[in-house]
């Protein structure tokens, strides 16, 4: 049994909630199709990283193709449950290193489970992923890092994630949040194994440098982890 007080308040409250919901909804709808500030920011980081990488496939295309519309794009791959939403939209008309940028999305490993729920030992799209320049491995894949990173280990591409333990699993760059700000760590041994040179300007900004690579065993030149 509800008391008189409660009956009286119920009507008023329902009205109030309705007001707030109706008012809040349009603001919310705006957001649903758009990325979170965190991932907008991370998208900009990914784009920036490309400026600090050297390796075979980052070299400028041959002179004939330079500044040509047909110059092959720099590919950013997103693997797994994509948190970026529309964060890469502004890149449509941007270039990096005189090349356009294109986004490729790949399904997470779970999507390739067979009828009994078994997962493949390597990501079936590893070849296509290997064509990318930068691959962001979403948090949905945190249990499958070996199946994803293993086949890519000799590809000169930058693997990025925001999953704790990513560097230890053989990834190259891992995002962190500290004091509400996005920062990152780098595994230089993994980069070296992939044949990727990371410029010192980028290394300097890393919060932590790891020099042990999951796919190579401890690096002999290791000398502490403070840089």
């Amino acid at each position: 049994m509800m008391s008189e007080n409660v009956m009286r308040a119920t009507g008023s409250i329902l009205f109030l909630i309705a007001c707030l919901t109706v008012w809040g909804a349009p603001v919310a709808v705006c957001a649903d199709s758009s990325a979170t500030p965190e991932y907008r920011l991370k998208a900009a980081f990914l784009y920036n990283f490309i400026l600090f990488l050297d390796g075979a496939r980052f070299d400028p295309p041959d002179d004939n193709a330079k500044n040509d519309d047909s110059s092959p794009p720099i590919l950013i791959g997103i693997l797994g449950t994509d948190p970026f939403a529309d964060a890469f939209e502004p890149l449509k008309d941007k270039e990096v290193r005189n090349r356009p940028v294109a986004i490729r999305r790949f399904k997470g490993l779970d999507e390739f489970a067979d009828a009994e729920g078994r997962l493949p030992a390597r990501h079936p799209q590893s070849e296509q992923i290997g064509d990318c320049h930068v691959v962001f491995i979403c948090r949905s894949e945190k249990e499958h890092l070996t199946a994803i990173l293993g086949p890519l280990r000799r590809q000169s591409l930058l693997t990025v994630a925001d999953t704790p333990g990513f560097l230890e699993a053989g990834g190259i760059v891992d995002f962190l949040i500290e004091d509400k700000k996005v920062c990152f760590e780098i595994n230089t041994a993994a980069a070296q194994r992939a044949g990727l040179q990371i410029r010192s300007q980028l290394l300097r900004l890393a919060k932590r440098i790891v020099q042990t690579d999951a796919f190579e065993g401890p690096n002999d030149e290791e000398n502490g982890n403070d840089t």
Binding site: T36, P37, E38, A44, F45, N48, I177, K180, K181, V182
Partner: peptide
């Protein structure tokens, strides 16, 4: 500059 941007709500 990106590293100085504060995000209001941290989902991570």
């Amino acid at each position: 500059d990106l590293m100085a941007v504060e995000i209001d709500t941290v989902v991570s």
